[in-house]
Design a protein around this nucleic acid. Sequence first.
DNA 1: TAGATTGTTAATCGATTAACAATC
DNA 2: TAGATTGTTAATCGATTAACAATC
Lengths: 200, 200
Amino acid sequence: MSQYLRQLEVVIHEGRQTVSSKELSRRLGVTDSLVRKDLARLGLSGCAGVGFPCQELLSSIRKLLGIDSIWPVAVVGCGNLGRALIGYRGFSDRGFRIAAAFDLDPQLIGRHIGTATIEPFSQFASIVKAKGILLAALCVPAVAAQPTAERIIASGITGILNFAPVILDLPDRVSVAHVDFTIELEQLIFAVVQSKLDRL
Amino acid sequence: MSQYLRQLEVVIHEGRQTVSSKELSRRLGVTDSLVRKDLARLGLSGCAGVGFPCQELLSSIRKLLGIDSIWPVAVVGCGNLGRALIGYRGFSDRGFRIAAAFDLDPQLIGRHIGTATIEPFSQFASIVKAKGILLAALCVPAVAAQPTAERIIASGITGILNFAPVILDLPDRVSVAHVDFTIELEQLIFAVVQSKLDRL
DNA sequence: TAGATTGTTAATCGATTAACAATC
DNA sequence: TAGATTGTTAATCGATTAACAATC
C-alpha cells in the first residue's frame, strides 16, 4: 500500500487528474487485475473508461493507512542510529514527526538534534503521556531492547519500530515492526549470489 | 532464511546438538511441515527420530546464503545515517565488514569512525577495486541517490543496500535491497490502527 | 458509436498444511 | 519394541491472473 502511495504521488506530481489501473500496475510491476482488486478491497472505485481520480485515491489510502493525520513518534536511544533517525528528513511530509527523544546517558541529555531535545529516559512516561505519543522507535543496544520495550509499553506505547537485532516478546496488543540491517544485507547478498549463479 | 539462522544460533547457544523441525517451527511461528520442506529444498536432511544437527545446519545455511565468508561493504554518504551504519555492531559477527566509507564533504574526509576512515568519493572506484568490494550501502540524500548509484555500479558494485527513499532504476545485473523507514513506519501504523479497530 | 477502463467471475498458481508410512 | 521425528504425498488455502460483460 505504501508503494501505491508513492506512485500516486509521482502521478499527481506530473499533473494528472486520473490514473488507470493499468498505469499503476505498470509502475508497480504487477498486473492491472491486482491493482483493481486491491483498490476494490479498500472500498475505492474508479470510473470505467476513465480510471481512478488521483487525489481521492491518495487521501483515501492515507486515511486507510491511518496516516491522514500526523503521528508523533518517540525515539528511544540516541546513539548513532537514534540520532540518524531524528535527523531523517522525509518523515515530516509523510505523516510522522519526531516528538521526543530519550537516552540514559547524562552526557547526551539536553542536547539538541534537529528540532528535538534529548530528554532523560526517566521522564519517558510523563512526556509520552503529555504529548499523546503512541509510537516509539527503539534504537537501544540489543541487550537493552527487551527490558526497554517492556518499560515503554507500560507507558502506553502501542507500536514499536524495533531497530535492535532481537525479536521482542511482547503482548499481542502491541504492534512491532522490525528493521534489521543484518537481515537486509543477508538478503541482498543472497540476491547477488543468486544472480551470479544464474549467469554461469 | 535469516530467521532460521538467528534461531539456530540461539539453539546452539543453549548447547543443543540437534533440533527438531517442531522446535524450530515453534520458535519461528510456522508449521513443522514448512520447516522440513524449506530445509529439504536446500538439500539438507535430518535424522528421523532425532532431528537436524545444529552445527551442520548452521554452516549449510550460511553457505547457501553466501555468508560463509566475510563480505566487505562500502558506505557511501557519511551523514547521520551513514555514520550510524559504520558504527553498527553486529555486522562483524554475521559475515559483513565495513571496509570503506565515502563522502563528498571535505569537512568529513579523513575523519575516523569506528575502524573506518572517511575517504573522498572521487577515490571510490580505485579503493573499491583495490579492496575487492562488491556491496555498497547507499546513505546519500534522496536527490543524489540515482546518480550516485549509477556512478558506483560503474565501479563494479553488484549489490546496493539503498537507504534513500527513492526507487532506483538500475540494470538487472545489479541487486538492490531497499530500506525505507517511512514505509516501515507506515506499516507499523497500519498494524496499530488495525489492532485498535479489531478490538472495538 | 467506438475506445478505454472498470468490477467481478472463474481459472491458475504457488505456498502452506495435514497426514502418514518410513526411519532412527 | 516404543517413541520421536523425518521426508513426502495429497489436500487446502489464499493470492494472483486472465477474461469479459458492463459502463463511462
